[in-house]
Design a protein around this nucleic acid. Structure first.
Lengths: 334, 334
DNA sequence: TTGTATGCGTTATCAG
DNA sequence: CTGATAACGCATACAA
């Protein structure tokens, strides 16, 4: 494919019989330039549809004006909305956003991060994959890194999180208030920051109600439906409620429960973290803990760009609040 | 933020006391090079964690190895899945993907396309915004453009679509077979290719059943819930079914119907285009027309890269098939 | 086989 | 005020 060569500063210079450097100055609005010349140059530049070549600029200025984003999965309301927040702030600041998906695989996450690094991005925003346990790929980065949602606290970089513990606590408390006493939790990989805090919130809520924690009712996996199914098929004593710590787990739970023919919420009540705007349309509507997704992304971008611009915000942690969105029909005594 | 300067070919050359060009050749595996030298260079390159600077490469070779993607909305299962398909093929071919959202706004679409053009992307994959009626921004592109889903046929470029007419026809036919006789359609902007074909499928299905089309039951808007609400509040004669031609419209319909307290499917049956994997969990589960989303994206990327590589595929149209996913509970006589 | 010189588009620096 | 030159990192035609 032969592409038309875009007009360059040289083309303008040639047409005007002046030096490229003069054209460059005229276009940048430098002060020591004849107003007439400037006008002339700008006129011709407009005629020729000149746009500066960002690649040449990047090479010269050693920055790409590109922010890399790595998330587990775009097709997920939480991620999609945070990305929208990142974009919003970044574009306002003259940055472009390059989005990559780890598809919850450590190897793919590493490959993406390395790829972005070799692309000379100016900074990275990342939410870790479910099975990421090593962090060399982040420590190796020679540009600022901001983490959100699933963060690695050992890295010490700036991060944006929500009140995971409190959110989970209140969600579980809600199930308890509605009479559930045998609450299982669907969590993610135990090494993820969000898993730990949400799980602790769950434990603490049970403790407050003097209900012993049953370790066999703590499921730590977001990959398949099997562990969920097992909760309801393995023995006599089954949970009377499920608390999910992630949207994907909500969908999986519903699918499993429907498949097993269990009535919701009569036989099993449900609540948990989800930012799916359609979850109120589910059968039954789900009580969910909602996160300020857009704002999470916006804050992450802000922290990152502050770092890029040299404003030290190392180890800064922004914590935002969740909202408990109660749907009456999802609970027995609703 | 001071970033560590990454190692360059020059660094390696200096350390080895040879010319940068020799290093360059050794790394590229050129033939006229001493095997010993090559090994040495590769060794040092590895030690110094050398990665070629893609920006310099782009400047030199006048290509960025970046594909631009502009879609209405990432937070949408159709878009997210097509993007996954695009990524899959593109990465395999050594391209990176830069994703932008138009948020269904023409102005934003134009801005994104121009931004990508100025970024010297190698090609563009786009699905048009709901209110895009002018196409200068696409005609201006000096790189290959592939459209999918919502395409502008006047541009004549390669495109990937589904059997929109047949999909809609079969969806509406299904409602008819289940006894619905007063079917309204929620469509998108009339100038969109998908709107036209799906609407025609609707018309043709009604005609086959000798049911006159009521123009007031053709809603062409995907922005607000108001037009949907009006269908059920304006007069005596109300539809007994809704056919939606887009996922977002499905969600909106459900929300409106619930708000109005209409029973589904007893009072109003629902069916339409959606790729939301959770729509079977809705109350009631929705009968949907599903698209081969991943494959659509893959094909689009394939067409684009073929064009970039100079393999002429101009005006090539790939049409894939939809699947009617019937959910018993969504229909009266199910 | 290896080194030298040039250019990709831009701007900073210095000279005029 | 404007022109010439060098440099960013790399690949390549040409010279040795």
């Amino acid at each position: 494919m032969t592409r038309k060569n875009a007009t360059t500063i040289k083309d303008i210079a040639q047409q005007l019989k002046m030096a490229p450097s003069t054209v460059s100055r005229a276009l940048r609005g430098s002060h020591d330039i004849n107003p007439a010349t400037r006008l002339l140059v700008q006129q011709v530049a407009a005629d020729l549809h000149y746009t500066p070549n960002p690649i040449a600029l990047s090479l010269k200025e050693k920055r790409s004006k590109i922010i890399g984003v790595v998330v587990p999965e775009i097709a997920n309301n939480f991620c999609a909305a945070t990305i929208a927040g990142i974009e919003d702030y970044a574009y306002r600041k003259g940055y472009h956003v390059m989005i990559f998906q780890s598809h919850e695989e450590y190897e793919r996450e590493v490959a993406n991060v390395r790829l972005l690094a070799s692309r000379r991005i100016d900074g990275l925003i990342i939410s870790l994959a479910n099975n990421t346990r090593r962090f060399d790929h982040l420590e190796e980065m020679d540009t600022p890194v901001v983490m959100f949602d699933r963060v690695y606290e050992g890295l010490g970089g700036p991060r944006v999180v929500v009140n995971d513990h409190e959110g989970a606590f209140r969600g579980v408390e809600h199930l308890l208030e509605r009479g559930c006493r045998k609450i299982a939790i669907l969590s993610m990989a135990p090494w993820l920051s969000t898993s730990q805090k949400r799980l602790q919130g769950y434990r603490d809520a049970l403790e407050q109600y003097n209900i012993p924690v049953r370790e066999e009712w703590i499921v730590q996996s977001c990959e398949t439906e099997a562990p969920i199914e097992q909760l309801f098929t393995s023995g006599a004593d089954q949970p009377d409620a499920l608390f999910f710590s992630m949207e994907r787990l909500a969908i999986m739970s519903l699918q499993v429960l429907k498949k097993l023919g269990l009535r919701i919420p009569e036989e099993v009540a449900l609540a948990g973290f989800s930012d799916n705007p359609a979850s109120e349309l589910f059968s039954p509507a789900l009580t969910t803990i909602r996160q300020p997704t857009f704002e999470i992304g916006r804050q992450a971008a802000e922290l990152l760009i502050a770092q890029i611009d040299g404003i030290a915000t190392d180890n800064q942690v922004v914590q935002l609040s969740t909202i408990l969105d109660v749907q009456a029909s999802s609970l027995r005594n609703g």
